[in-house]
Amino acid sequence: MLEEAGHRVIAVDLPGHGIDHTPLTEVNLKSYTDCLSAVLDKESEKVILIGHSMAGVVISQTAEYFPEKIEKLVYLCAFLPDNGQSLFDAFGIVDLGDDAPTAVYIDEAQTYIGLNDEAIYSHFYADCSEEDFQYAKSKLVKEPLIPSVTPVQVTEERFGSVPRVYIEGLRDKAIPIKLQRAMYAKMPCEQVITMDTDHSSFYSHPEELSVNLLSLA
């Protein structure tokens, strides 16, 4: 839909995700930022960089390295960490009570993050069609733990110089709306867009999401 509107779109498979089969034990936050930085390095124009969920951490740290390459950062139901804060640290900034997510588990060796099968639909794809849910579920992988416990190191001079937009999902159970709002209250964005959606609006409400993204271009 974005391409039909005249934009060029690059969807990135981070190491250990999608078609990239880098072993979990070899992946850290730098692996992610190196991958994304390599994409940015090839671009002659500034990009609008969108991070969903965990990738909010990745786009924040990458913006510290390449602020001159990024026109705008868009956090789509994403983690928005403060300097010195990891993804997991973000859960400590607000008491979620009964809304605390239950989909994620960490293996005994503390090497990867997995998902409890019975909670995947309700936490990530509650508004999706059965077809989209099954497709999305087939793409899920175990994620290395290290990137999620590594604090970001960002400065106001570099990361802070890039405009930020947050797109919140009111019915997100993976990153509950209470946590989303606590994060962007602590790390203010120039604009907040509200969608009455689950965690994965690119599957469940693609037309509405595309309209919102096009409004930022």
Rank of each mutant, 00 (worst) to 15 (best):
F124Q: 07
G16E: 10
I175D: 01
F79S: 00
S129E: 08
V152Y: 01
G114Y: 11
S204R: 02
R181S: 04
I70R: 07
L209G: 11
Q134F: 13
L2A: 10
V74E: 06
P176D: 02
E43N: 04
E68F: 13
C77Y: 11
Q134V: 05
H205L: 05
L216G: 05
T62G: 06
S122K: 12
A63H: 05
H21Y: 11
E3H: 03
V149R: 13
V57R: 00
Y166N: 09
S129M: 09
K46V: 10
N212Y: 03
Y112E: 13
Q110R: 15
D107N: 15
N83T: 07
L140S: 09
Y203K: 02
M54W: 13
Y65A: 14
E168A: 14
S60T: 15
S86L: 12
V149T: 15
I106A: 01
V192D: 04
Y112L: 03
S37Q: 08
S161N: 02
M1K: 14
K142D: 08
M187P: 00
P147M: 09
G51L: 09
D117E: 15
D41I: 00
Y32G: 05
L214K: 15
C77T: 14
L140F: 08
L179E: 07
P101H: 05
I50P: 02
L87P: 00
S122Y: 01
L36W: 08
D117R: 06
E108M: 10
Y121D: 06
A185V: 00
L140M: 15
G6Q: 06
A63K: 04
S204Q: 05
L73Q: 08
A38G: 14
L2P: 00
C35S: 15
E131Y: 07
D107L: 06
L140C: 11
L29S: 06
D41A: 15
M183Q: 14
A182L: 11
D107R: 06
Y203S: 01
Y184C: 13
D132G: 11
V58Y: 02
A5W: 02
H52L: 02
C35K: 13
E168S: 15
Q191P: 09
D172K: 03
K72I: 08
E168W: 02
A136Y: 00
P163W: 07
Q110C: 13
A182T: 09
S122V: 07
S37T: 09
Q153D: 13
D98L: 03
I10D: 05
G169P: 00
V104W: 14
I177C: 04
K30L: 12
D82G: 09
A185N: 12
E131Q: 13
Q134S: 10
V152H: 06
V192N: 03
H21C: 04
Q153N: 12
G84A: 07
H52C: 05
I177E: 00
Y135Q: 14
K139R: 12
T102Q: 14
T111N: 12
S215M: 12
Y121L: 14
N28T: 12
A78S: 14
N212T: 05
E45G: 01
S138D: 09
I193P: 10
A109H: 06
A78H: 03
E71K: 15
S200Y: 10
A11L: 14
S200T: 15
I106P: 00
S37C: 08
G97H: 01
E108R: 12
K139M: 13
D20G: 01
L213I: 13
D41L: 04
V211F: 10
A136R: 03
K42G: 09
A78F: 06
G97K: 04
A109W: 01
V57N: 04
A78V: 08
I167T: 11
E45M: 02
G114M: 10
K186V: 01
